[in-house]
Write a protein that binds this DNA or RNA. Structure first.
Lengths: 150, 150
DNA sequence: TGCTATGTAGGAATGATTCCTGTCTAGTGA
DNA sequence: TCACTAGACAGGAATCATTCCTACATAGCA
């Protein structure tokens, strides 16, 4: 979703995040994207308007935003880290073919529990569900048409 | 669980994995461990009995075993990869304090579905659930006693 | 406007993982 | 038992996302 700079500034202040042009640009790029971009993706996008932008600043800023709760990190397998401007509780659907990640919002999935006998004194704070499969395009391309799980 | 070399050999053959001493040692170390060791952990363990063992061989072997379906890779956040000799469908409970990973087996968790309107033509093959929280020890150490989620 | 804590840029460092290459060996057929 | 060969192993180099270091710049406050 396109955010104007006023809204971005307001969110930063609400989360006690110091406002700078670089941060606003990085956050805007992330909020604007429906995919789940990597730090490198964001770096390339932001560099177009801020040629001096350093890769380092992108990593540092993502760290700050994540700690402030404005950004979520999504890790799939051992791939590079991806980021998500959607910080509401949600889950992910991941294509094993092309790697795309789709957000899944479902209240039912938000209320899973561990059988207490297995909880072993853990204080459970949250959970996330990751669905794996093949997207429509990858199925058409012949991937994933085989039997579910080898 | 302790596996004898006969059982290991049998499993390898069943999965068309060539039997070598190194592989058997790596697989035995993994099956013997209740934690979810990293490649480095396994390397150090196995090196005690096989001083010539190369780190490379551990990675290569874990790749082979994973492809054969004898081993599962568990990734938590952006930490180093961990491995699991338990290849039945199961889920994980992760301590945010000490990083320990506990297996969770529950049939209910094995039957989650995405609301079809969100599935967008995906062919879903499986899913995994990751619970996050603090283990009993970390709670006692003062971690995690605060409110769930900031 | 000036001060100072904090942010930024750029380059170096780190470290898990992968790649490369020469040597070795498990498994097979004779 | 022996020789052959595809595949496995060891060791070192390479990769590459991420983090660390440091000097300079600037947001936000007084």
């Amino acid at each position: 979703m396109k955010l104007d700079s006023q809204e971005i500034e307001a969110r930063f202040r609400r989360h006690a995040v110091r406002v700078t042009r670089q941060r606003a640009a990085i956050y805007a790029a992330l909020a604007d994207s429906t995919s789940h971009p990597t730090a490198e993706d964001l770096y390339r996008t932001v560099k177009r308007e801020h040629p001096m932008m350093s890769r380092n600043t992108v990593y540092y800023t993502l760290g700050v935003l994540r700690q402030a709760g404005l950004v979520q990190e999504v890790n799939v397998g051992h791939e590079v880290a991806r980021f998500d401007g959607n910080v509401t509780v949600h889950h992910h659907l991941i294509c094993l073919g092309c790697g795309q990640i789709v957000d899944v919002m479902d209240d039912g999935l938000n209320h899973l529990a561990i059988p207490s006998r297995q909880a072993r004194g853990f204080q459970v704070l949250g959970h996330r569900v990751e669905f794996h499969g093949y997207c429509a395009d990858c199925q058409q391309a012949g991937l994933g048409a085989m039997e579910p799980r080898g």
